[in-house]
Nucleic acid binder design. Structure first.
Lengths: 148, 148
DNA sequence: TAAAATTAGTTGCAAATTGCAAGTAATATA
DNA sequence: TATATTACTTGCAATTTGCAACTAATTTTA
């Protein structure tokens, strides 16, 4: 029975690092939180602030300010919803879409490179395992409530 | 061929969250970076500042200040090395050791809980996959240098 | 249907975190 | 012995963070 935490500690650190370094596209430099935000906006249709804030699991006040920054950078647009005037609908600008896509491509390229060190069988196994893990984590009662 | 990035994005977000919430032990609250630092100090014998800073991949100046904070919190001690007077040797205080151990236990407990949603075979497969992934990532030429 | 409660989002702090540039002191190199 | 390198620290200055307290819109409820 090996030390599971060690394994995950290393893995998450690597991904943290990767996220940190992923995020400049030409002259545009986005932080890793910002890249997550772009990613989630891109994935959804007409999402609200709260939806994205929940998806990336950051405080709504922090999120509000991050969006302000992204708007200044002309990567994101914010429009009042006609259905509910409290709600702001988020979308990517053309540039934002480009940045999101470029980051996505480079991340996938990186993952391809990583997987190139494995044979087909290993590759499949690893992918399936990550899926299993994600499912198990979402079922877990412990995650994301204070642990102690 | 599914979207690998999506899989990893979700996984790392979950672990990020977990790390965020992991880290209060009684009255002592440590940030996730600080818990990584404690973890790495605990793992090594008589490590230097630079060694730990490299291990957790943070800037040495930021690290220097984080250590100052941890010393004020009485979780870490710093002693000049007798072999090389430039070097500071780090160690955990009794309290620091306690905090590190408690966090480690709660993380492992969480992981056990997550794995409890799987059968033995799946469990083994997932663990083996994480190992494979870590190895592949360490072989990668792309990781941790600017991607674009 | 008017008052009360909830929801979405924004600001004002104040603290913590970050990294670059420039420093000191100790050691290694030429 | 002079020069470079290494280990670490400090001075900024910018960014990021979260809590509390706010506005405005919508729902609930009595």
């Amino acid at each position: 029975m090996e030390n599971k935490r060690e394994l995950f500690q290393v893995l998450t650190r690597r991904f943290g690092l990767l996220n940190k370094n992923c995020c400049s596209v030409g002259a545009v430099v986005v932080s890793s939180v910002q890249s997550h935000i772009l990613y989630e906006i891109d994935k959804r249709t007409a999402p609200s602030m709260q939806q994205i804030a929940d998806a990336v699991a950051i405080d709504i006040t922090t999120f509000s300010r991050q969006i302000q920054t992204l708007i200044k950078m002309e990567l994101v647009k914010k429009n009042p919803s006609s259905a509910d005037k409290r709600v702001s609908v988020l979308s990517l600008t053309v540039q934002g879409k480009f940045v999101a896509t470029t980051i996505d491509e480079s991340m996938n390229a990186y993952l391809e490179e990583v997987f190139s060190h494995m044979n087909e069988f290993e590759k499949d196994t690893v992918i399936r395992s990550i899926k299993l893990l994600n499912e198990a984590m979402s079922k877990s009662s412990v995650c994301c409530t204070p642990l102690l």
